[in-house]
Simulated scan of single mutants.
Amino acid sequence: MREPVELRRQRILAAVESRGSARVADLAAELQVSVVTVRRDVEELAQEGRLRRGHGVVRSPLAAQDLPAARAPAPDGEVVAVVVPERHTYLYESLHGARSVLEAAGRRIALHIAPQVTGAERPLVERALADGAAGLLLAPRWRTRADEEGDYGWLALLDVPAVLMERRPRPGSALHAMDSVCSDHAHGVHLAVQHLVGLGHRRIVFATRDDSPTARTLRSACARIADAHPLVERWAWALCAPEAGHDGPYTAQETAELPALLREVGATAAVLHGDVDALMLVQRLADSGVRVPEDCSVVAYDDVVAGLGTPPLTAVAPPKADVGRAAAELLLQRLAAPRGGGGPVRRIELLPALSVRGSTRACAGAADRPE
């Protein structure tokens, strides 16, 4: 799916604001779009007063050269490098949360966007350290378990404080003793299931992606919670998009078209990770004459754009910005402590919340069903 224009421009703004200035060619390479596209975006942003243009260079309106000396950028030893995957709106909210904490502490952010290829984070981290970064906030893409474990060795050898955002390494691994701040996604699934069961739904389809640690955590939580719930009669899991199944051995049911799977299971509700896939399911159901929420309730997981749908989607909202803030606060504690100090390793979990909107309602006949 092509990235929305406004999202791409927000990424340009984030990159320029974190660095003070950036070359147009570098932005095009990071965003994997043409230089012409970036120039067009920059022109629009400049007209809105959100950027300043130069010859091949883009500057923030608050660039260092336009500020009083007291607000000059921090020296290299005060720089924190942040590495996040490209085209990941969820983690960009975490980035902005971290930025608010770091800037208040006088730290400058060096933002690095990792392209969608295996192993992209390591050279970015090495570059950041060579440029003098004192600490790191990291959210590796880790599309597969093998990708994740392949990064354990070099991450465990980092000689500066580092905190993982929304990533929790496997227990007992070389990276187990690394600070991390995550959303408690199992609690998020629990909220979704309890909401639907409370509305009388007894048959539920869950769908997640196959390309992120969050998706893998959600899949495991869906199975555990649905299996254990005494009121869930039947459930099934599938990929949000059947074409995504090229990365693993999946059954025919797990790669089935979701409207067909809902019919097969007799499901009256679905929980999808994330918002865009949930919005598209609502459209696909409408095309086949299934109304949301009258015939099928839908819960999205992420709550980035879920509220913009028709109807607005009920959604589980992980505390995205708070994850970034907590990770930045933990990193600042490590940076302030003597080398090797700062107390025990911390694995912090923050609880998601449920926003109930127009895409869920009581299941037909639920009032007459015995509990």
Rank of each mutant, 00 (worst) to 15 (best):
1 M>K: 11
2 R>C: 00
4 P>R: 02
5 V>H: 09
6 E>K: 09
7 L>K: 12
17 E>V: 13
20 G>N: 12
30 E>V: 05
33 V>T: 07
33 V>H: 03
42 V>K: 02
43 E>I: 02
51 L>N: 08
54 G>C: 04
57 V>F: 02
63 A>G: 10
77 G>Q: 10
80 V>F: 07
82 V>P: 15
84 V>G: 14
92 Y>C: 00
96 H>K: 11
101 V>E: 13
101 V>A: 09
116 Q>K: 15
120 A>L: 08
127 R>P: 01
129 L>Y: 08
137 L>N: 08
141 R>H: 15
144 T>A: 05
145 R>N: 11
145 R>W: 10
150 G>L: 00
155 L>N: 11
156 A>Y: 04
159 D>R: 10
164 L>D: 08
167 R>H: 13
171 P>W: 04
171 P>G: 07
185 H>F: 07
193 V>C: 05
194 Q>T: 15
196 L>I: 04
201 H>D: 09
214 T>W: 04
221 A>T: 00
237 W>K: 08
239 L>K: 11
248 G>P: 06
248 G>S: 12
265 V>G: 08
269 A>D: 09
290 V>G: 13
292 V>Y: 06
294 E>Y: 09
297 S>A: 14
301 Y>C: 06
310 T>C: 12
310 T>P: 00
311 P>T: 03
312 P>G: 09
315 A>K: 10
320 K>W: 08
327 A>V: 07
327 A>N: 04
331 L>M: 01
333 Q>D: 11
336 A>I: 03
344 P>I: 01
347 R>P: 00
349 E>L: 15
350 L>E: 11
358 G>Y: 05
359 S>Q: 09
364 A>P: 02
